[in-house]
Amino acid sequence: MEKKANFLLDNKTEKCLTNRLRSAGCVFAEDEIRLLISEAKTPEDLKKMVEMRADGLPLEYVIGCTKFCGLRIEVDRGVFVPRKRTEFLVQQAETLSRSGDIVVDLCCGSGAVGIALAAALGQVELYSVDIDPVAVHCAGRNVTDFGGHVFEGDLYKSLPHSLKGHVNILVANVPYVPTWAIQFLPQEARLHEPKLALDGGENGLDIQRRVADEAFLWLAPGGHLLVETSEMQAHQTFEIFAGAGLTTSVARDEELDATVVIGSNSGF
């Protein structure tokens, strides 16, 4: 994501700005300042960005983008920032996909999961959905580059009915933080990301359950539903999927601390 700077900055000024970030608690101040330098258009712009970051605004909101699966993803303020661990969700979906598949990305946020899968496969028919109009606006800019379509609505409600029974890959990085646990999230997420994108209900499973309950109506024979969840919730998510009639398995990546539950429509 880092690109060539738009201007030259002397070492003294760079060190001063780095110290400003470090004193504000930015652990990776040197890396962040290099990224800010590469994204700023002028020295004045850079100083404003440094102050926003020092005031606690997430880096992704300061520069307006993030890197995900090697792609530059635009991220507007108030849109959920895609996490590194979610790349495991994309990897798992990719192993079950092929070029030309119909892919639906529910709770798409910035659209990162769907477009990363589209980029990996080369050609898919992509439909991305989010209930938040701010996310839909942001995803529209990202998804359009891959020929995808973005809809505003509650899960499946805004999807074209013609997709019923024809979706090959259904990915859903739904909110799965229990309501009571939101207060314990890192400050950047808790204060700046939309609660709508974090809150999964009393036990964190409300949205997963709704996605699984209707999955059979939308999946093609041999199609797959994949959701990210926590390691602690994986057994419950497994039971939800199995109860919805899906052939279910769990994939885990310890290094990324990522857990994905996969449900397949085994009917042919």
Rank of each mutant, 00 (worst) to 15 (best):
E2L: 00
L8I: 02
L8S: 15
R20I: 08
S23H: 08
A24V: 14
G25L: 11
G25Y: 11
F28E: 13
F28N: 13
A29Y: 04
E30S: 08
D45N: 11
K47Q: 15
V50F: 06
G56K: 10
L57R: 09
L57G: 02
P58G: 01
E60G: 01
V62P: 02
K67I: 01
C69K: 09
C69Q: 10
G70E: 12
R72S: 13
V75E: 01
V81A: 00
P82Y: 07
K84F: 11
V90W: 01
Q92L: 10
A93E: 00
E94G: 00
T95Q: 15
T95H: 14
I102R: 02
C108G: 12
I115E: 12
Q123H: 07
A135W: 05
G147M: 06
G148F: 05
F151N: 03
E152D: 04
G153E: 13
D154Q: 05
L155P: 14
P160A: 12
S162A: 12
H166C: 12
I169F: 04
L170P: 06
T179W: 07
T179Y: 09
Q183M: 14
A189S: 08
R190L: 10
L191E: 12
E193N: 01
P194M: 04
G201A: 07
E202Y: 09
E202L: 13
D206V: 03
Q208E: 12
D213W: 11
G222R: 07
G223Q: 06
H224M: 09
L225H: 01
S230R: 06
A234V: 01
I240T: 09
F241V: 01
A258G: 05
I262R: 04
I262M: 02
S264G: 11
N265F: 01
S266H: 10
